[in-house]
Write a protein that binds this DNA or RNA. Structure first.
Length: 671
DNA sequence: GCAGCGAAAATATCT
DNA sequence: TTTTCGCTGC
């Protein structure tokens, strides 16, 4: 037998001359992560230890050493985070970094399935449905099966969807999930299972997928189809996952499948910052990483570069209150600043006034508004402040909270687009047909059955079916859809035509139609940013625009705005000054988490995350009283903050100006 | 089969 | 306060 010696590629041996001075710019541990070559690595990084920086430099370093940027996959928690990281890498190195693939798991899965879904029996041009659509389907199935009548105690649509979501994201058995989460429904498991079966079938027949499907079907695809798995894994030579503590079992499995060929994976996370268990995230994923990827390099980043030491002290003592301890203590070599403030306001509005005035003072001191953030537990916790900020003309953006695309009138218009993109989408058909007077659930369903069998799904004027009073309106709809389908209009032209058609329905259904029509006008502008209808639907499903984003867009402020954000959406971000408002027991921790120590711990971690966002100064504030949505109210400060002693926090006293200065007085008198 | 009315219930965080 | 369910009249 002959021997043939394969020599190592000489280019692999050549040392790379880096233009970037990584040794100078990074500490030892960061450098180790950045220079890490091949195989699996687990980076455990506390808050503010330069986790993002490390990832950014690693991708830049890989690209600089000749790795094709398109073969790097950066999975992050939000689209925003991925874009920011790619931007930073681009500014450190060069434009090659723009080709790096980045986004959320859901986004990546969406792209994957829009290429390969046909391999698992779905068309590639399926539509993604959001939570409210999913709930509607569940409700439809639930009613159709008659379970709503059989037993008053049958779980409602919200409960059903959350059970199903747990099954998928945590990879649980139905029986286990129900007996753990909802023991009261154990004896109805068979019926629940029926609902789930019908739900899955409905989605399959309508060519739609919900958020969980994106993950689950991707796993299924990659598991079943070796060819696709290999191809995909080869295409993603370097896989990186940020915020790994907030991934769930499905995402861990997906990570493994994506790396099946090369095993080049680096995950970064901090178990003390896990705040998404309500979505099935399991911070155990970090501990179990070595089981999934044999022999990973473990790198710990411990020195905090973000916050001044007194903020870290508050953060550390918060974490000590956890029922399940962390052996974690953040330290910093920064100069000591001021003690974090504890501000008690007499009312929610006084709290808003405090924040607004403090923000304005900081601005006067030369701190840019976008270096200041106000954080809160729930989207609605900032409503009062938003009014106050508007009154004082302080520009702001809000992350989290209500979504523009959730509003009924926007969903109505979007439903027409969905029908154009995917004529099998019953849900969307139902929505647009039921707008018409005289058409209810039954007629809509009959019409849909007929639509499916028709040659042209938009040709609705067959008088054998439609012979009632609403014939005229059906014809109008049909004409519109055929026109839009046959003519090659731009996205915003299509939206404009739809709004023209929708106007009458809007005026009839809503008292506040002028405002809604104005929203729709805004929507025309937004839609012009998308290249095609299907792409717009995908983008909006995975990255829905928040209402305030739309509003601030309109204002076109000349100054970078103040940031308002839910704590969940503040993940991974940082600001010089951070205000955490509504620190009341019942809000944070949420009143619904008080019974369960796991949930209570998560609320504590939430406050920990908020606290560690601050670099220079931190303010906790709470009003003496806050009303919940109905009836009850909260008056006690958050137990987490109450447990901190005065060496960690400094109470601030709010006092009102007694007398106005003379010139001010004149101003008030003349007005 | 549809629409409108009154009574009763009601978990937020996000993709 | 808002959403959801069930009933009634058309």
């Amino acid at each position: 037998m002959k021997k043939f010696v394969l020599r190592q590629d000489s280019s692999a041996l050549k040392p790379v001359n880096y233009n970037i001075d990584y040794v100078e710019l990074l500490n030892t541990q960061q450098l180790e992560a950045v220079m890490f070559e091949k195989g699996a690595a687990l980076v455990i990084a506390g808050a503010g230890t330069g986790k993002t920086r490390t990832l950014v430099y690693r991708v830049a370093r890989l690209v600089e050493s000749g790795v094709h940027p398109g073969s790097i996959l950066l999975l992050t928690f939000t689209r925003r985070a991925a874009n920011q990281m790619i931007e930073r890498a681009t500014s450190i190195l060069d434009d090659r970094c723009k080709q790096i693939k980045g986004g959320t798991f859901h986004f990546y899965c969406s792209q994957l399935l829009h290429t390969y879904a046909s391999e698992i029996g779905y068309p590639n041009d399926f539509t993604i449905i959001d939570t409210s659509d999913a709930l509607e389907v569940i409700q439809y199935v639930r009613t159709k099966l008659g379970f709503h009548k059989k037993d008053k105690r049958f779980p409602n649509k919200n409960t059903l969807l959350s059970i199903l979501s747990s099954l998928k994201n945590r990879n649980l058995d139905l029986r286990v999930a129900v007996s753990e989460l909802y023991p009261q429904f154990v004896n109805q498991i068979d019926s629940i299972e029926k609902v789930f079966e019908h739900y899955e079938e409905y989605k399959h027949q309508n060519f739609v997928m919900d958020f969980d499907d994106l993950l689950m079907k991707s796993v299924q695809l990659l598991k079943q189809n070796e060819q696709v798995r290999t191809k995909v894994s080869v295409a993603n030579q370097y896989v990186m996952v940020d915020e790994y503590q907030d991934t769930n079992k499905l995402q861990a499995e997906l990570t493994q499948l994506l790396c099946s060929v090369h095993n080049n994976v680096m995950v970064v996370g901090d178990d003390a910052q896990s705040i998404y268990s309500f979505r099935g995230a399991d911070h155990q994923n970090i501990m179990q990483f070595p089981e999934l990827f044999s022999n990973p390099r473990i790198i710990k980043l411990e020195e905090n570069y973000r916050s001044q030491p007194l903020i870290l002290e508050a953060a550390n003592s918060l974490l000590q209150q956890a029922s399940f301890k962390f052996d974690k203590k953040l330290f910093s070599k920064k100069d000591t600043g001021e003690l974090p403030a504890l501000v008690r306001a007499s009312s929610e509005n006084e709290q808003s006034q405090f924040v607004a005035q403090a923000v304005l003072q900081l601005r006067e001191q030369g701190i840019a508004l976008n270096e200041i953030a106000v954080l809160f537990r729930n989207g609605r916790d900032s409503f009062d402040l938003e009014i106050e900020l508007n009154r004082k003309n302080v520009p702001f953006v809000k992350y989290g909270g209500l979504k523009f695309t959730e509003a009924a009138h926007i969903k109505d218009v979007l439903a027409h687009i969905r029908v154009l993109v995917n004529p099998k989408d019953t849900l969307a058909w139902n929505r647009i047909l039921m707008l018409i007077d005289g058409i209810g659930p039954k007629t809509a369903e009959d019409l849909f059955v007929w639509i499916q069998s028709a040659q042209n799904p938009y040709q609705l004027d067959s008088s054998e079916i439609v012979s009632k009073s609403y014939l005229k309106q059906i014809e109008a709809l049909s004409k519109l859809l055929i026109y839009l389908n046959d003519n090659d209009l731009t996205v915003s032209e299509t939206v404009e035509k739809l709004i023209e058609y929708y106007r009458v329905f809007c005026e009839k259904r809503y008292d506040d139609y002028p405002k809604r029509m104005k929203d729709l006008e805004t929507f025309v502008g937004i839609s012009s940013g998308f290249p095609s209808l299907p792409e717009m639907l995908r983008e909006l499903a995975l990255d829905p625009i928040t209402i305030s984003a739309v509003e601030t867009e309109e204002k076109q402020h000349e100054e970078p705005p103040l940031v308002l954000s839910t704590i969940h959406s503040s993940k991974g971000l940082e600001w010089e000054h951070v205000f955490i408002i509504q620190c009341l027991d019942g809000i944070i921790p949420s009143a619904y988490s008080l019974e369960d120590e796991y949930q209570l711990d998560e609320e504590l971690r939430l406050l920990y995350v908020a606290t560690t966002r601050a670099k220079q100064m931190l303010y906790y504030s709470y009003p003496a009283l806050a009303h919940s949505q109905y009836g009850d109210y909260f008056t006690k400060p958050s137990r987490f903050i109450d447990n901190l002693n005065e060496q960690v926090l400094e109470p601030w006293l709010l006092s009102h100006e007694q007398q106005l200065p003379e010139e001010e007085k004149d101003k008030y008198l003349t007005e």
